[in-house]
Simulated assay, not measured.
Amino acid sequence: MRRLESEMAILLRRIKCVVAERARAVHPELQPSGYLILAWLTDHGPARATSIVENLDIDKGAVSRLLTHLADLGLITRGPDPADGRATLLSASATAAQRVADATTGLRKRFDDKLGDWPDENLADFVDLLSQYNKALGTTPP
C-alpha cells in the first residue's frame, strides 16, 4: 500500500502540472480549476452552472467565481436556456474551445511519444486497471 500511495502521489503531481500547463496554453491568466471547467464545457456542450457543480463536484461559490473569471477572460459565453428562459447556459467560446483542443492534441502527442514503445496490450491493461481502481474508490468521473 505504501508503494501505491507513493506512485499515486507522483501521478497526482504530474496531473497538477499538466492541468496548470494546459491552463496557461489556453490563457496565461487561466487558473487550473478554471481550465477543468472550460474543458468540461468543451466536452459536454452548453450547460447550467448547477450541472458544472454536480458533475465536477466543485463548491457552488467556487464555480461562480471561476465562471466570472472565465467570462472576464472571454473564454465562455452566456446565453438563455431554450428550455427555461430564466436560466443561463454557459458555453466555451470558439477561441477557448480551439485552444483546449490544441492543448489536448499536444498532450496526446507527448503521451504517444513517451508511451509509444509500450505494447498495446500493456497500455490497455494499464487503462483497465486504472478504471478498476477508480471504480473501487467511487471516483469515476461522469
Rank of each mutant, 00 (worst) to 15 (best):
R3G: 15
R99Q: 12
S51Y: 12
P32F: 06
V127C: 08
S64T: 07
A87M: 13
L90F: 06
K16I: 06
R110Q: 11
I76N: 00
D57S: 11
L66N: 00
Y133W: 09
I10H: 03
R99H: 09
A49G: 07
P82Y: 03
G106E: 07
F111Q: 15
F126R: 13
L12V: 13
G116I: 03
P141C: 09
T139M: 11
I37L: 12
I37C: 04
Y35Q: 04
E121M: 10
F126V: 11
A124T: 08
G138K: 02
V100P: 01
L137R: 12
T77Q: 11
L30I: 06
R65I: 07
M1I: 15
P32K: 02
L70A: 03
T68D: 03
T50D: 14
V18G: 06
T42I: 05
S51R: 08
R14I: 13
V18M: 15
P28E: 15
T50A: 15
A71Y: 08
K16P: 01
P32Y: 05
L107I: 14
I10L: 05
K16L: 15
R24M: 14
E7F: 10
R14L: 14
H27C: 08
A103I: 00
E121L: 11
E54D: 15
S51Q: 10
S33T: 07
R86G: 04
S93M: 00
A94Q: 01
T68N: 03
V63D: 00
P28C: 08
G79H: 03
L90K: 04
L129Y: 05
I58N: 01
Q98V: 12
T42Q: 11
T104M: 08
V26I: 02
D117P: 07
G74Q: 03
L107H: 10
D84P: 05
R24I: 08
N55W: 04
M8V: 14
P141L: 11
R13A: 12
E54W: 07
I52P: 05
W40R: 10
M8D: 10
T88N: 03
R65Y: 11
G116D: 02
Q31G: 04
D112N: 15
R3Q: 15
L12A: 15
D112V: 10
A49E: 05
A25M: 13
A39W: 03
I52A: 00
A9F: 01
L12T: 13
I58Q: 01
H44A: 03
A94H: 00
M8T: 12
E54F: 12
L12H: 08
P142M: 03
G61L: 07
E7Q: 10
D59N: 02
L89G: 01
N55G: 05
